[in-house]
Amino acid sequence: MVELKVDQDKCLGCGNCVVACPVNGSISPEVASGHGSKTEETIMMVENGLIKLFNPDKCTKCGTCPLFCPTDAIFLE
Protein backbone atom coordinates (compact mmCIF):
# COMPACT_ATOMS: atom_id res chain seq x y z
CA MET A 1 0.00 0.00 0.00
CA VAL A 2 1.49 3.29 -1.13
CA GLU A 3 1.45 6.04 1.51
CA LEU A 4 2.35 9.72 1.62
CA LYS A 5 5.15 10.31 4.07
CA VAL A 6 7.30 13.23 5.25
CA ASP A 7 10.77 13.42 6.67
CA GLN A 8 10.85 16.60 8.75
CA ASP A 9 14.62 16.33 9.23
CA LYS A 10 15.05 16.94 5.51
CA CYS A 11 12.30 19.59 5.16
CA LEU A 12 13.38 23.16 4.42
CA GLY A 13 9.87 24.48 4.96
CA CYS A 14 9.75 25.94 1.47
CA GLY A 15 6.12 25.01 0.91
CA ASN A 16 6.61 23.92 -2.70
CA CYS A 17 4.65 20.73 -2.03
CA VAL A 18 1.78 22.65 -0.46
CA VAL A 19 1.47 24.86 -3.53
CA ALA A 20 2.04 22.09 -6.08
CA CYS A 21 -0.47 19.63 -4.60
CA PRO A 22 -3.52 19.60 -6.90
CA VAL A 23 -5.79 18.38 -4.12
CA ASN A 24 -4.74 21.28 -1.88
CA GLY A 25 -5.51 23.60 -4.78
CA SER A 26 -8.99 22.24 -5.17
CA ILE A 27 -9.66 22.45 -1.43
CA SER A 28 -8.18 25.89 -0.90
CA PRO A 29 -7.61 27.85 -4.15
CA GLU A 30 -5.51 30.54 -2.41
CA VAL A 31 -2.89 27.86 -1.69
CA ALA A 32 -2.39 27.18 -5.40
CA SER A 33 -1.62 30.84 -5.95
CA GLY A 34 1.07 30.73 -3.29
CA HIS A 35 -0.78 32.08 -0.26
CA GLY A 36 -1.31 30.50 3.12
CA SER A 37 -4.28 28.19 3.53
CA LYS A 38 -7.36 29.54 5.22
CA THR A 39 -8.48 26.10 6.35
CA GLU A 40 -6.95 23.05 7.96
CA GLU A 41 -8.61 20.90 5.32
CA THR A 42 -5.59 20.69 3.00
CA ILE A 43 -3.44 17.56 2.89
CA MET A 44 -0.29 19.25 4.14
CA MET A 45 0.87 22.64 5.38
CA VAL A 46 4.04 24.25 6.65
CA GLU A 47 3.82 24.73 10.40
CA ASN A 48 6.64 26.37 12.37
CA GLY A 49 8.88 26.08 9.34
CA LEU A 50 8.34 22.36 8.79
CA ILE A 51 5.95 20.38 6.62
CA LYS A 52 3.16 18.60 8.43
CA LEU A 53 0.51 16.21 7.10
CA PHE A 54 -2.96 17.22 8.20
CA ASN A 55 -5.18 15.08 6.00
CA PRO A 56 -3.04 12.37 4.35
CA ASP A 57 -6.21 10.35 3.71
CA LYS A 58 -7.15 12.88 1.02
CA CYS A 59 -3.98 12.15 -0.95
CA THR A 60 -4.63 10.45 -4.31
CA LYS A 61 -0.96 9.45 -4.70
CA CYS A 62 -0.60 11.36 -7.96
CA GLY A 63 3.08 11.93 -7.33
CA THR A 64 3.14 15.70 -7.87
CA CYS A 65 4.56 16.88 -4.51
CA PRO A 66 7.73 14.73 -4.64
CA LEU A 67 8.49 16.22 -8.06
CA PHE A 68 8.61 19.72 -6.54
CA CYS A 69 10.35 18.95 -3.24
CA PRO A 70 14.01 20.02 -3.43
CA THR A 71 15.15 17.68 -0.65
CA ASP A 72 13.02 14.49 -0.98
CA ALA A 73 11.42 15.38 2.34
CA ILE A 74 7.96 14.43 1.07
CA PHE A 75 7.59 11.11 -0.70
CA LEU A 76 5.36 8.19 -1.55
CA GLU A 77 6.29 4.67 -0.57
Binding site: V2, T60, K61, C62, G63, T64, P66, L67, F75, L76, E77
Partner: peptide
Protein backbone atom coordinates in the same frame (compact mmCIF):
# COMPACT_ATOMS: atom_id res chain seq x y z
CA UNK B 1 -2.36 0.54 -8.17
CA UNK B 2 -1.37 4.13 -7.44
CA UNK B 3 -0.39 4.84 -11.02
CA UNK B 4 0.65 8.45 -10.40
CA UNK B 5 3.06 7.48 -7.65
CA UNK B 6 4.37 4.50 -9.62
CA UNK B 7 4.94 6.32 -12.92
CA UNK B 8 6.14 9.64 -11.52
CA UNK B 9 8.06 8.93 -8.33
CA UNK B 10 9.41 5.45 -8.98
CA UNK B 11 7.36 3.66 -6.32
Amino acid sequence: GEIGAIERTGV
